[in-house]
Design a protein around this nucleic acid. Structure first.
Length: 355
DNA sequence: GAGTATGATTTGGC
DNA sequence: GCCAAATCATACTC
């Protein structure tokens, strides 16, 4: 930052010093009260003044203030000022040419858009949860989706915080430096001609310089987000077995629809919801299961029997509950005892069949 | 660490 | 776009 400042100051002082060196050879109009002095003496006088101006920064503050006051009151000052005005007028054309406003940088716009889309810049709304959700969806989602999702969000929030802190720092530094330069130019305007327009131009230069530094920050932030995102996607790509409960639900459906194990879109959605997985994962599971079952029915026979029994039990309980309900609601039908329930017969039959 | 199970991906047919 | 089949890559079990 200090280097930038030094370079900027050098650029600022460059115009003035160049002006001085030129005017030495131009010949000043005879200063008031100096009629009759020779040309060499005048040159010497001007040389002294310029030397004092150029070495003013090497002196202590008090010394410099005293010198500055001395220079301001110097009898040659009005003459020097008018020459500087003349030079300024001549160089003004080139300055005016460079004053046009820059069009918005497309790269900066791209970076801004990306940071906004990722939830790094702009108002905070869950730290890019939409991006995380999109990444999760692209990778197929998973049972413990929320853990990685929150991890991603936490890391994105971290990036967001660093980005905003740095941005604030840059803005603060830019404002401080702008104020400093403006004060300096106002102060200098007492000894050399500086129009408000020029001060404005200088502020523009400073802002452009700082915005290029900001662009680097934005670029680094974008890179960090991309790395985080790719890591997150890689993590999601890792295969994880479904939970036991999810596998049971899927197996139950499969074996209870063994004659036609092709769930409809609605059924897939329902299963996905129950198992906390995605519809495409349900499709994958059924695809794998159909093929593997077909390839080795013998191996899956035991599993098939198990789930058939389970389904039977579930069905029995459902029917029993329904019958009990209907009996309770019917005053004319007395409760004739659980053991006579036909569902038990069905259950035992099923168990016999499974053997 | 080898063998097996399992979720995901790829390829080709319809 | 859905499915079957083959294959890949990883998780799990012993």
């Amino acid at each position: 930052m200090m280097e930038e400042q030094a370079r900027m100051m050098q650029a600022l002082s460059g115009v003035t010093l160049a002006g001085h060196s030129v005017q030495g050879g131009m010949g000043l109009p005879p200063p008031h009260g100096h009629e009759g002095t020779d040309g060499d003496g005048r040159k010497q006088d001007i040389g002294d003044i310029l030397h004092q101006i150029m070495t003013i920064t090497d002196q202590s503050l008090d010394e410099a203030q005293a010198k500055k006051h001395g220079l301001n009151c110097h009898r040659m000052k009005p003459a020097l000022f008018s020459v500087l005005c003349e030079i300024k007028e001549k160089t003004g054309l080139s300055i005016r040419g460079a004053q046009e406003e820059d069009p918005p940088d497309p790269q900066l716009m791209r970076l801004d858009n990306m940071l906004l889309a990722e939830g790094v810049s702009g108002p905070e709304k869950g730290g890019g949860s939409a991006a995380a959700a999109a990444a999760a969806a692209a990778a197929g989602g998973g049972a413990d989706n929320s853990i990685e999702h929150s991890d991603y969000r936490a890391k994105l929030t971290q990036i967001r915080q660093i980005y905003h802190t740095e941005l604030e720092k840059y803005e603060q530094a830019c404002n401080e430096f702008t104020t400093h330069v403006m004060n300096l130019l106002r102060e200098q305007s007492r000894t050399r001609p500086i129009s408000p327009k020029e001060i404005e131009r200088m502020v523009g230069i400073i802002h452009r310089k700082f915005s290029s530094i900001q662009m680097q920050l934005k670029q680094s932030t974008c890179e960090a987000v991309m790395i985080l995102r790719s890591r997150f996607l890689d993590a999601r790509r890792k295969r994880r077995n479904f939970s036991k409960q999810a596998t049971e639900i899927l197996n139950e459906y499969f074996y209870s629809h063994l004659s036609n194990p092709y769930p409809s879109e609605e059924a897939k959605e329902e299963l996905a919801k129950k198992c906390s997985i995605t519809v495409s994962q349900v499709s994958n599971w059924f695809g794998n299961k159909r093929i593997r079952y077909k390839k080795n029915i013998g191996k899956f026979q035991e599993e098939a029997n198990l789930y058939a029994a389970k389904t039977a039990v579930t069905a029995t309980h459902a029917v029993a509950a329904a019958i009990q309900n209907s009996q309770a609601n019917s005053p004319t039908t007395p409760n004739s005892g659980r053991h006579c329930n036909p569902c038990f017969y069905y259950y035992s039959l099923s168990l016999e069949k499974i053997g």
